[in-house]
Structures are given as structure tokens and as C-alpha cells.
Amino acid sequence: MNSTARIYRIASIPGDGIGREVIDAGLQVLRTVSELSNGEIAFEVTEFPWSSHYYLEHGHYVPEGGLEQLAEHDAIYFGAVGGPEVPDHVSLWGLRLAITQPFDQWANIRPVSFLPGVSSPLRKADTTELEWVVVRENSEGEYAGFGGRNLSGRGPGNEVAVQTSLHTEKGCERIIRFAFDLARTRPVTKVSSVTKSNAQQYGMVLWDEVFTRVAKDYPDVETESVLVDAMSAKFVLHPEQLSVVVASNLHADILSDLGSALAGSLGIAASANLNPDRRYPSMFEPVHGSAPDIVGQGIANPIGAVASAALMLEHLGEPAAARAVLAAIDATTGAGILPKDLGGVATTAQVTEALVSALREDQRASETEEVVALS
């Protein structure tokens, strides 16, 4: 290893189902990035076996001291969590949210990318350049975990469940400012704020008020405030009007899934759970779930995990490597090498091999251009 290499410590948590399959693919791509960097980039990967199987064996997902171990890393690479033998709310709160919340990963970034060679159900995608990013408040809102279940002792049919949505002025402001700062880096400088403030007159009205106040500090950025039901329609009818969409935990979760489905499949959706203050490591994961119905069949789509690795490279300060990975994805899908969920027949291994080959080909092309330029 080059003594001057930039070494990144990655905590790998494959988790459940197809998580291991897609994380393995992503790590192959990262190893190729390292190999092609001429010793400038290196990854030290430590795998953590936390999963639903681990939970059933030990009674917990994250062992005592586990977060302290994760904190020693530069980034976390996460696969999926969830299995038929564990209730979904147990697995989600036991692993994913057990990391994002204490590490204050308050900004969840979910790009919506339309890939070459991938058919979209949107007719407009055939003639219009479409690409936007959903910015999700990731620390409070509808997933704050406040509430409880009571009165079951009064007999069947009398139990009451209360789920409280939490919106703080600080939480709203920091994610909204994040969205505005992101918009300034994009070709279209626009932020669309999404709420349901006509019906939710407290927390979401606070969000709207903070958005209006913060927008005054960004006079160069176009803005709009849209109710979540109207924004769902806009995703389908007028997606060309979107650039940065910022919303609460629940609304952005749903809208980002809709966006990825419109782009072709949840299998291509990437995400980053960011601690922008960098006090803790950020976590990168594909949006799709553990898909227990296709585990071991070799047909899982690795593109979402690989695109998440590109987001990780960007966060780690390697933008050129991130662009190379995204270009390899475009080259692969553009060549018609598509997994089953995108209408193709390629296996997970074949898609991964094509991504690696595309990276190598891009490197050879760059070296050829350098030789020509020197001559």
C-alpha cells in the first residue's frame, strides 16, 4: 500500500436478506476503485454481523459497546434489515434507527436518477431530462418514536394507540438550510417544501413558517411550498419542475420511493444518512428492503448499493471516484445489462462484473487521452 494513501475505515453491516449480496457487490466496486487509484485510495473494511439472525441468537441487534465501535470508522455501509421471523418495527428500531438516531444522522439524501437503458413508466421520461433529489428530515417528525399503547386492560376493543409526531424549530431549520445549500450546487436552484399543514396545523405549520423565514436568506434560490398529496401528483405529472424536494421523515420516505419507482425500480435507489457536522460517521444504504423472497437466487439488483457507495465516496472527499462509479452504472445499464427487476436477465454477479469492467474501461480511456494529450 502506498504510504501516502488516503485510507478510509468502513464499517460494513450487510444485515438481512439480500443485504449481504448487494453489499458484497458494492465492496467489489470499492476494491476496484482502490486498485485503479494507483495506491492513492485504500479501504479498511470491518464487517459487523448484526442482523435478525443475530437478534434471535443474542436478544439484540447492536451489542453493548457496538456504537462506540462504529464511531471509530469513517463511514458505515449498510445493506438491509428485516426478516419474516422478527416484526418489522422491532428490526427497524433495533438496528437502522438504533444507528441513525444516536449518531444524529439528521439529513437523509435520496437522489432520483433516471438511468440510460432503463424503462420508466413515465411517458415524459422518454423526451425530458429528469433528475431530482429528495432531502428527508431523518431525526424527528413522524418517526420520533413518541407515543404508546394503553387501556388494553379494559378488555378487547378498548386499547388506544397514540403516535406523536415531533417537529422542533431547530430540526426544521437545519434540514431546510441543508436543502437550500444543496440547491445552490445544482443546475436548477430550486427547493420544493412539502407538508400537510392544512390538516396538521401545529408541527407542519411550524415547518412552513421556518421554510418561509429561511428562504429569505437564499434570494437566489427559487422556492415553492406544496401539500404532500399535490406533490405526489407533481412527481408523476410535472417531474421536470423538481430539483430539491425537502420534507419530513414520513413524507420524504414515501415520496422518495415513488420517485425511484418512477425511475424504474426501488433496486436502483441510493441513500445517505448524513451527520453533516461530522461528529459521527454517516451511513450509506440502498433504499430497498431485505427482499427475503429472492435471497440466494442471485438476482438481487446491486445498483442501489453501488450508487450508495458513490454517495459515500463523495462524502469522504473523493468526488472523482464517485463520478467514475456513477458513470460505470450509466455504462452498464446503457449497454442493456439489467437485472430482473429492471426487465433484464442479468444476475447480481453479471451486473457487478459489468460495473467493474466499466470502471476499468473508463480508466483505460482516461490513460489513452492523457497519452494523446502529451504527444
Rank of each mutant, 00 (worst) to 15 (best):
E129V: 06
D220T: 11
S139M: 00
I18Y: 02
V29Y: 06
V372I: 13
L27F: 01
D126K: 15
M1R: 13
L250H: 04
L242C: 02
L36N: 02
G171M: 12
V246I: 09
I41W: 15
R184P: 06
I254C: 04
E318F: 14
G153V: 09
V371G: 00
V345T: 14
P49G: 11
A5G: 04
P239M: 11
S51F: 06
T185N: 05
P339S: 14
H251N: 15
A309N: 13
L262A: 02
G17N: 02
Y202I: 15
G15F: 12
S165F: 11
T212V: 11
G117M: 06
S51R: 03
F211Y: 10
Y143N: 02
D126Q: 12
S256M: 03
A321H: 08
V210G: 01
A25S: 15
G83A: 10
V351D: 06
A252L: 05
V245K: 04
A309Q: 06
A272F: 09
G343S: 08
E64R: 10
T127F: 04
P49A: 11
G17L: 08
S120H: 09
D220L: 07
K196M: 07
F211S: 08
G259W: 02
P319R: 07
E142R: 02
S37A: 10
V45M: 06
I175R: 00
L95K: 04
R174P: 05
F103K: 01
A328S: 15
R31K: 07
E285P: 02
P49L: 14
E129C: 05
V133D: 00
A11P: 02
R360I: 12
G317Y: 09
V45I: 12
N138W: 07
A358V: 13
T332E: 06
Y55S: 03
A328Q: 13
V29F: 13
P219H: 12
E72L: 14
S260F: 09
A263N: 06
E47K: 08
L122Q: 07
M283Y: 06
A305E: 11
Y202E: 09
E129A: 12
L313V: 13
M204A: 09
G82I: 04
F178A: 11
F114A: 05
G336C: 05
F48G: 12
F235I: 13
F43S: 00
T4S: 12
N301L: 02
T223E: 10
S248Q: 13
L326T: 11
